[in-house]
Design a binder for these strands. Sequence first.
RNA 1: GCUCCGAUAGUGUAGUCCGGCCAAUCAUUCCGGCCUUUCGAGCCGAAGACUCGGGUUCGAAUCCCGGUCGGAGCACCA
Length: 477
Amino acid sequence: MKELDVEEGQEVVMRFAPNPNGPPTLGSTRGIIVNSEYVKKYGGKFIIRFDDTDPQTKRPMLEAYDWYIDDCKWLGADPDEVVIASDRIPLYYDYANKLIKLGHAYVCFCDGADFKKCKDAKQACPHRDASPEENLKHWEKMLSGEYEEKSAVLRIKTDIQHKDPALRDFGAFRIVKTPHPRQEIADKYCVWPLLDFEGAIEDHELGMTHIIRGKDLMDSEKRQGYIYKYLGWKYPKTTHWGRVKIHEFGKFSTSGLRHAIEEGEYSGWDDPRLPTIRALRRRGIVPEAIRKFMLDMGVGETDISISLDTLYAENRKLIDSGANRYFFVWDPTDIDITGTEPCIATPSLHPAEDRGNREIEVGPKLYVCKEDAEKLSIGSRIRLKDLYNIEITSLEPLQARYLDDSIVSVKKERMKIIHWAPVNGMPVTVLSPEGEFRGIGEKQIATELDNVVQFERFGFCRIDDVGKGIVAYFTHK
RNA sequence: GCUCCGAUAGUGUAGUCCGGCCAAUCAUUCCGGCCUUUCGAGCCGAAGACUCGGGUUCGAAUCCCGGUCGGAGCACCA
C-alpha cells in the first residue's frame, strides 16, 4: 500500500459509506478493505456510515444494514463506529438553516429542465436572488410538507458562471414523500439531503482526515468545497480510484440483481453465481484471500478489469493444506468388476498433511465418471485411485476384471488413474457459477459440514449441507 | 456541448511527485521441465510492457506541448 499523506502524530479517521440498498459485493469490498487497512496501519478510527437518504430511487433494504456490519467483521474490518445518516436528519437541517441565513443557499422552484437551461447558460434562475428571509420561509414550508415532490429543492450557491457546468449551484435537499424503510424513521421527514450535502456535513462532523472514493465522485470535492468554505471548515485529504470490473461477472447493478432474485433467476443474495460477499463466503473463499486481492490492486485512478483467477490463486494457497480430499463422481456410470473380493479402501485425507485416512467399502460394483468411461476401450488398463488396477472387458455394460494392486505396474505402464465412488455413497449436488453438478460421493463427506474440501480431479468445494444428501458450493479449481 | 481524470507485459501492480541506480518490480496468467496414485500446491526454467508524435535535456517511463484511446461529471441517485 502506498503511504497516506499523514501529518506527524496524526490519527487517521476514514470511512466506508455505502447505501444499504443491497448486500456488499466484491466491488464495495475494496472500500471496506482499503479504508480499514489504512486505519490499521496508521492508527485511528474506521467508521461505517450508511448513506441511506434516498427512500425512493435507491431505497435501502432493511436486512442490508446488518449484512454490511457482518461482512465487514468477517473481512477483518470491524468498524469502530457505525453511523446511520437517516438518524441524523435534524443535523443536516441545522446546517441548511445556517447556510440559508448566510445567503449561501436558496429554495429553487424551477422545473428540472428549466434550471438546467439557466445553468447551461451560466445564468441565475429567478429564485437565486431571493433574500435569506424569504428562503427561510420557503424552507420551513418545504419541511412542513406544504410543497409537492419535485416542486421545490434547496440549492447551494456556488458560482453560476463557473466554467465547469458540474460545479454550478447544486441541489442539497429535495422532497420525497415515500416513507423511509426504517420503522423508526418512516414518514418522519419529507425533505431528504442529497449525497453531496449529507456527505459534506458528515465528513466534517465525524472528523474525517482522509477520504478514498471512486473517481466518479471527483467533482464532489469541488462542490462540497463551497460548503466547507462557507462554514470555515477544512476539507479532508482525498484519493480516488477507478472502476473495477470483474471479468467473470461483467456488468451488474444492485437493483438489477435484486430484480433477478425476486424473479427467481437466482436463489438469493448468496447464490454462487453472484459477486456478493455472502456468496463468496458460502463458496469457501476466505477473508484473507479477498484482503490480499484488494490490497494488491492498490488505489490507482485507472479503470481496471481483473480476473477472479487471481483471487482464486490466493485462496487456494490458503485453503489447500486444510482441505481434506474426497471422491466425488459427477455424472456417474457404474462398472462391474470381477475377480476380487469386497474390501475397504483407505485413501489418505490429504496428500501432504498427515491427517489419517478415510474408509470406503468396495464391492463388485462401483461408480466412475461417464467422461472417464467414454475414453475406455476393451483391453484398457487403468488404475482406480488408491484401490487397484483393472482391465476393461466390456463397454456395454461396462465391465472389468481385477488385475493387481501394484502401483509399480501403474507407473511402468503409465496407466491412467481415475477416481471412483462406492455404490452405497451419498448423493452430492455441487452448486457452481457454471451450474449444477450431480453425482455420488463418499459417505464420509458428511462429516465435513461447513468445511472446504477438495473433490479430487474436480476442485475445492465448501460443504453446505449434509442432511438428505450432500450440498456443496464450488469454491474454485 | 461544457468540464475533469487516466494510459507500464494477457491481467493487476511497483517506479512517475524530486529525470540518470529502469536493457523497468512483484503477483497472477500462459508455456516447458521436475515431483506427485487426483487436482492444487511445491521446485526449476521461459515468454511477455513504458499509448503515439513532437519538445526540453548530456540523459525521459519519469518534465512540457499536441494527438489517440478509455473513463467520469454536468440528477430533485449514491
